[in-house]
């Protein structure tokens, strides 16, 4: 099944809010061995000027992945997830994700391309607080391997 190129520019409705928990951040930081105090101790994070414990940079990808699932699950867009390989990943931050943030993601299809029999899909997910404060932009480029 081929990707539908007419989806470029298509924006999906906002995701349900993701409430960022302090313990979830600690769990994620521990899983990647990131032991800076700002990832686990609210006082250390506040001393840096943040509202609460901050997340390591790629934690935003966990939230964005959930928010972009709506695109991957859209049969009209046509992603065959059994053939997907993660190609590129990119983040731009207004500020780190903080415990207590309630983040909504809006997923936009930025690129749809077929080259050498493989499909390429880039999604851009804008993460912002429910109050509308932009926090991070997350790009994921997936390669959908062609039939062997």
């Amino acid at each position: 099944m081929a990707l539908d190129p007419s989806f470029v520019g298509h924006s999906y409705p906002p995701s349900p809010p993701y409430l960022v928990g302090r313990e979830k951040i600690r769990e994620f930081a521990q899983a990647i061995g990131a032991d800076d105090a700002a990832f686990r101790d609210p006082d250390a994070a506040m001393a840096l000027g943040f509202a609460d414990v901050i997340a390591p940079p790629t934690f935003a990808g966990v939230i964005a992945m959930r928010a972009s699932q709506v695109a991957f699950d859209d049969p009209a867009l046509g992603v065959d997830f059994s053939r997907v390989v993660h190609g590129d990943q990119r983040f731009r931050y207004e500020r780190p994700v903080c415990a207590g943030d309630s983040l909504v993601g809006v997923c936009v299809v930025e690129e749809v391309m077929t080259r050498a029999g493989h499909g390429f899909l880039t999604t851009r997910t804008e993460l912002s607080t429910e109050a509308g404060e932009p926090v991070a932009t997350v790009w994921a480029r997936l390669v959908i391997r062609g039939e062997d």
Binding site: A34, A45, I54, G61, G87, Q89, P96
Partner: peptide, 25 residues
């Protein structure tokens, strides 16, 4: 893997310092 490379970045530059980060796998 990307998270581990990001861990190196925050080790060098400090937690909360990252404004952009991208990789190709």
């Amino acid at each position: 893997t990307m998270a581990l490379a990001g861990r190196a970045v925050t080790t060098w530059a400090g937690a909360g310092s990252v404004t952009e980060y991208g990789v190709r796998f």
